[in-house]
Amino acid sequence: MTALLRVRHLSTSFQTEAGLVRAVDDVSFDLAEGETLGLVGESGSGKTVTALSILRLIPQPPGAFGPESRIEYDGVDLLRLPSRELRKVRGAQIAMIFQEPMSSLNPVLTVGSQISEAIRAHEPVSRKEANDRAVELLDLVGIPEPGRRFRDYPHQMSGGMQQRVMIGMALSCRPKILIADEPTTALDVTIQAQILDLLLELKERFAMSVLFITHDLGVLAGVADRVAVMYGGSIVEQGPVRAVFEQPAHPYTRGLLHAVPRVDRPSDRIEGIPGSVPTATAWPSGCRFHPRCSECMKRCEVDAPPSYSAGTDHTARCWLLDQSEGQRQ
């Protein structure tokens, strides 16, 4: 499989009154054609900033990318693309759906016009044609009476419907890559499964690559091909979904897996990870996870671990891998 999207050494920081916020620090990953990569991490670990950085949707200032950062799509570095060219990628090649569908839709425009405007931004079609296609898309994402719903304003729809509209909008130009940033977090539990099923079905149908962001590792088991675990602005472990679930190499991943209730390993209590996520203004020294790590060693407090191999196509940033099984990459 060839990588469609290559993210290399992505660092995104924000200049704020509280100081420099290093929200994303040296993140690298590939997204292959047709692949679903699950990006998982606790709140504040930098998932959304990573996603927004890909389409350069980070406001600059206060945001800024590190000089090493590269985001290659189809061999072109999106971070250095002139904005006119970048616009042709946004929505048409790489589309995105967001955590909160309600606030992500413009309250004073009809949902239909918000979809057809996405089509007209990239294709030379008439307004009528774009509107017809928008109705088809509403139908595709499972909105009943799409012809009538076309003229609805966002507030007239439920959260689940709004997220369906967002999905329809994202698919309107048949993008190669869909970035889904916690698409079900803001929804009712019953609706979450429906939206997830819809996404999986459409991914197959449109043969898209998906970057699926979630804070729920459990969801990824049935969704992702590969998994990247984020902590404190960096990816601490990534690999094939089976390998990560069955042989987690990083203590943080192991902690997350313990926190996921599992049917096959009944236990009367769910172990969480003690402590809380550090803030991006002041990361801990050395390994950023060390204050919460049950296997913390002396060097973890001082030096940040490099990326070690933990199996085929499986890496983790942890000093534990230095002596035991892996060899330095």
């Binding site: 904005s83 967001f98 309250p107 405007e117 931004a121």
Partner: peptide
């Protein structure tokens, strides 16, 4: 607002983002 981010993510020109999406809301 988040919908401005959506508008940019769709690939709209900055002019459309300002005059259609932001201005329409700021008219109120």
């Amino acid at each position: 607002e988040n919908f401005i981010r959506t508008a940019r993510a769709k690939g709209l020109s900055e002019q459309t983002v300002v005059l259609k999406h932001a201005l329409r809301n700021a008219l109120l």
